[in-house]
Write a protein that binds this DNA or RNA. Structure first.
Length: 274
DNA sequence: ACGAGCGCCTGTCGGC
DNA sequence: TGCCGACAGGCGCTCG
């Protein structure tokens, strides 16, 4: 589910509040509840439950696909992986089937980490470096220039699709937005990174920023996010459009498997050579 | 340094 | 209706 735009959408909702949801900023953690032990990667539950109690949520940040809850003393880091979601609820609401971790907050509300497939993880720590230190640049960083991006691409012999999914190369892209960005840039997913011209690299960076910006503006690629108003799935150019005509040229969209991930592209608009 | 394959999990969908 | 495989937004690991 969540790539950079979805994580950013959730972050905004939790910070600013949204209809039915008050902001959780400034609230105190009164109690925590862990319903699936593996969801808490570290530390052990006893320590976490004791130390988190009484801390306030000072700020909510994001790095790549990681959500960062800056607390009074520690940081709660959450990665939603495939099916994770964060919900604000009244304390007396029934606990949904797939809730894995719940923070009970001051003011009669709670923050629930809901995660059907149980891949999501939470870390409670004072040092985020081991988790975030190896991440690549943020796509919207002003320090990431077309020239700098081109140089990074030239250092790799990898195919574009797996490279863009590698969070140490660039932080935040997932399967949907990678396919969309490559299509928009007119680049084949199997193209070798070190064969791109400066102009192609610049177009790729621009395309990445465009599709991510569209994703954020439409509140994420929902599918099962209807309640949140996510709308990006109505704007897919290639993702999950196998066999359907390319919006640009009418050629049927092709699907291949690459590193266990479905990969969608237009064979005409994204030629393997040039 | 790279790609391929698997494990972690639950749910949905299409074919037979 | 029921069963079975394919597939799903991610990522860490091993192996060649």
């Amino acid at each position: 589910m969540p790539e950079l735009p979805e994580v950013e959408t959730i972050r905004n909702n939790l910070r600013m509040g949204v209809e039915h949801w008050p902001s959780i900023l400034g609230r105190e953690i009164e109690r925590v509840e862990l319903l699936w032990p593996r969801t808490l990667a570290e530390p052990d539950y006893e320590f976490f439950a004791r130390k988190a109690r009484g801390q306030r949520i000072e700020e909510i940040g994001r790095r790549g696909k990681f959500m960062l809850f800056q607390l009074t003393e520690d940081v709660l880091v959450i990665h939603l992986r495939m099916s994770g979601d964060l919900l604000v609820e009244p304390v007396d609401a029934p606990v949904a089937l797939h809730h894995r971790l719940i923070l009970y907050l001051s003011g009669g509300i709670r923050l629930a980490f809901n995660d059907t497939r149980k891949f999501g993880r939470a870390w409670f720590t004072q040092d985020t470096a081991p988790l975030l230190g190896s991440l690549g640049p943020e796509p919207f960083s002003e320090e990431l220039t077309p020239e700098g991006f081109h140089e990074r691409l030239l250092r790799s012999k990898r195919q574009l699709k797996p490279l863009l999914l590698d969070q140490t190369f660039l932080a935040g892209l997932g399967n949907i937005y990678t396919d969309e960005a490559l299509n928009l840039a007119g680049l084949h997913p199997l193209r070798r990174a070190d064969r791109l011209t400066l102009e192609q690299s610049g177009r790729l960076l621009e395309s990445i920023r465009t599709v991510l910006r569209q994703g954020i503006q439409t509140h994420g690629a929902s599918i099962d996010w209807v309640y949140r108003g996510g709308d990006f799935q109505n704007h897919f150019r290639v993702y999950q459009r196998t066999g359907q005509p390319c919006l640009q040229c009418g050629t049927p969209i092709e699907r291949i498997t690459l590193g266990q991930r479905g990969t969608h592209f237009c064979p005409h608009c994204q030629p393997i050579d040039s």
